[in-house]
Amino acid sequence: MPGFLVRRSLTLLLTLVAASFLVFSITEFSPSNVARETLGAYALPEQVHLLYEKLQLGDPLLVRYVRWAGVLLGLRKDPLDNPALGLNIHDPKGPRYLGNFGYSTLFRVPVNQIIWNRLGNTAVLAGIAFAIIVPLSMLLGILAGMRPGSFLDRALSVASITMTSMPEYAIGVILAAIFAVWLKVLPGTSPLVGGTGWPLPSQFVLPVAVLVLYDSGYVARMVRASMIDVLNRPFVRTAILKGLPRRRVILRHALRNAMIAPFTVILLQINWLIGGVVVTETVFAYPGFGRMLLQASLFGDIALIEAATLIALVIAMATQLLSDIGYWLLDPQART
């Protein structure tokens, strides 16, 4: 196990370097540049040129990448954080520290000042959704998988396939139309601002509902398939033939084994909930990580995209590690 952890950490580090370089090199193909973005659309070409030169943006890609990595590791000062440029860019933590993601040209603040807050908001949304999705989809999947082909199974299958095949955007707009515009029982947007007549908890209901409706069906289908598979295994048949009550067969013998395959799928939902809920966050104006990443990408805000990519990668690798450990605990065969 310790050797495994070390190997995993090294892979993570390598992946981070490779991914950050890839994202960085994409800027080569984008026509915009940091100087233009910093000064805005209406700055004169002369002003842009001045800043372009001062920031040495004409240097080779690799040089600029190493420079960027140096700022991140706290070895160099952020070149934009320079009073001589007259840009009013100032990081309260100082121009040089470990974990300095630089300056967001879109939001015009240090990346660290915005990204953790957004990540926190998304974590709250994702946490609530996850806490509902997991038990709900497991319950539905187990119920459906216990008696494949039964009325309950068919009904659950049809419902979950329908919800999964509807785009999140459509679910969001339909829910908002019903509950916000027509019935007026819930707020139509979730900017997380109090005092608008709608208490904060009520602002979570619709975004969470969209995520739960969209995702539970998929996870439930996975649990169902695994349950059916396990129930057909010889050891279950043996247990039934031994004369154990059905309830005991399912809870003691089948369930644990049926959870091994969906466990990975369930943990993968965390990645989706952190980085992939762009649509839900946009529809409800939720100030989260996904919406921020979308805005940053459309704007070409390279510092923010880099930081978000690295953070999303770390989360992805961490959940993968978690799923490996879980697998290891659930499945004795994996321990050898």
């Binding site: 515009v181 947007t189 900017p191 709608w198 100030p287």
Partner: peptide, 20 residues
């Protein structure tokens, strides 16, 4: 209070409809 509703067109309508 100036509240950010993003660029999505449907969001502005929802926020107005629920008097946010």
């Amino acid at each position: 209070q100036f509240i950010d509703l993003g660029d999505n067109m449907a969001t502005g309508i929802s926020a107005m409809a629920s008097h946010q």
